[in-house]
Design a protein around this nucleic acid. Structure first.
Lengths: 202, 202
DNA sequence: ACCTGAACACCGTTCAAGT
DNA sequence: ACCTGAACACCGTTCAAGT
C-alpha cells in the first residue's frame, strides 16, 4: 500500500519489529520499550534485533519516520475547498496523536543520544522536511480556495507547526533549521501580542 | 538570598546535590545525570543520595522547581513601562534557557515515570501555577502601561506560554489543566489563521 | 545470510551494617 | 541522624557459536 516495490523478507522482518515496538509504546510508554520486551513481543531473540537494526535509537527513528509518513498522507488527503480554518481544525487531533505516540520519545531520544551519526540526523531532517512541505502545500492550497494568498515568509509553516504542537502539548522539534530565527520570533510575538489585547474602543 | 529562614544542614546538603546535578546536566545532558555520577560529583556515597532524595525523579523535580522559581523572579523584576511587546521579547531568551536546561528532561521524566505519586504531581502543578500567575501579572501590568486591557479568557496565559515555548523549541507541559481546551484551540487557530494570510487588497 | 543466548559493562534502588 | 558500599534486578550492546 505504501511501498513502491515488492518488500523483501528483511523488510517484512523490520516491519514486524516496528509493529511490535509501536504496540509496546502505546501500551506502556517509552519505559516499556526495552530491547528484551521488544524481542519477546516480536518473537525473536535479543541478538537478532541487532541484525535488523543498528541499535535502539534506529528502531525509534524508524518508528518516527512511520508517523511522519502517516501525517504526510493525511495532509495530502485533506480537502482543500473548505478553507484554511477547517484544515487547521482537522489537523489538531492527528497532531496530538502524533505527539502522544512519538513526540515525547523524541525528547527522550535526543536527550539520551546527543551523539547521533551524521546520516541518521540527515535522514531525520529529510523526513521532517517532507512533512513540512506537505503542510505548506495544504496551507497554500486551502488559502487559495478562499481566494487568499499565504504569506511568503518561510517562517510561516514552522509557526503553524509550532502552534499546532502548542495545542497538543507538543515538543516542537529542533528540525526547523533553514529559518531566520529573529523573523520567526517576530512573527510569533506579533501573533501573541494581537491575541492578548482587547480590541481598542475607538 | 532566596530562602526565608536559616537553611538547615539537611537543606545545605540537598542544595549541594542539586548544584552538582545542574552541573552534570549542563555538561552532558540527561544521560550524564546518573546516580553514580551525581554521588561522585557531590562527594558522597551512592546510598546517601537516597537519604536526601526519595529517588532520581525527586532530584529532577527539585531541579525543575528551582528553574521555575528563577523564572518567577525574572518575570516579577521585568520593567512594566516598556509595554507588552518588550516583555515578550525579553522573555524569549530566558524561556529558551529554561527549556534547554530542564525542559527536555520533563519529557524524559514523564515518559519514564508515568506513575508519579499524587503529592509529587501536586507539587509540580503548584510550582507551574505560580509561574503562570507571575506571567499573568506581567502581561496584565504591561498591557495596562500601554493603556490597554488584557483579554479576560483564562486561555490567554497558556496560549502565550505555549507560543514562547514554540519559539524555544519547547515542550509545552501538560500543566495547563484548568482550561477549556476548545477555547484554547479556537484562540490558537484564529491566531494561526490571521498570521498565515496576506491582508486582502480591497 | 540468518539466528541464538551467555557475557559485559552499565543502571536505579535497597539494605544490612557502621558511626 | 547520618553515612557506606555490596548486592539485586534490571538495561543496551556485543560476540562466539550455531544453521
Amino acid at each position: 500500500m505504501t511501498s513502491q516495490k515488492e518488500p523483501s523478507a528483511a523488510d517484512d522482518k523490520r516491519r514486524l519489529i516496528l509493529d511490535a515496538a509501536a504496540e509496546l509504546v502505546s501500551e506502556g510508554g517509552y519505559s516499556a520499550l526495552s530491547i528484551r520486551a521488544l524481542a519477546s513481543r516480536a518473537g525473536m531473540s535479543l541478538g537478532l534485533l541487532y541484525y535488523y537494526f543498528a541499535d535502539k535509537h534506529a528502531v525509534f527513528a524508524a518508528l518516527m519516520r512511520d508517523q511522519q509518513a502517516t501525517m504526510v498522507e493525511l495532509l495530502d488527503s485533506q480537502p482543500r475547498d473548505l478553507g484554511l480554518r477547517s484544515l487547521l481544525l482537522a489537523m489538531v487531533e492527528p497532531t496530538r496523536r502524533q505527539w502522544l505516540q512519538v513526540g515525547r520519545l523524541v525528547g527522550v531520544w535526543r536527550a539520551e543520544r546527543p551523539d547521533v551519526t551524521v546520516e541518521a540526523r540527515e535522514q531525520q531532517l529529510d523526513s521532517a522536511r517532507t512533512q513540512f512541505e506537505a503542510l505548506e502545500r495544504a496551507l497554500r492550497e486551502c488559502a487559495a480556495a478562499e481566494g487568499r494568498v499565504m504569506r511568503a515568509e518561510p517562517e510561516i509553516v514552522p509557526f503553524v507547526w509550532a502552534s499546532l504542537m502548542g495545542i497538543a502539548d507538543l515538543h516542537a522539534q529542533g528540525w526547523v533549521t533553514p529559518i531566520d530565527e529573529d523573523r520567526l520570533t517576530d512573527i510569533t510575538v506579533s501573533a501573541i501580542e494581537e491575541h492578548v489585547l482587547e480590541p481598542t474602543k475607538e
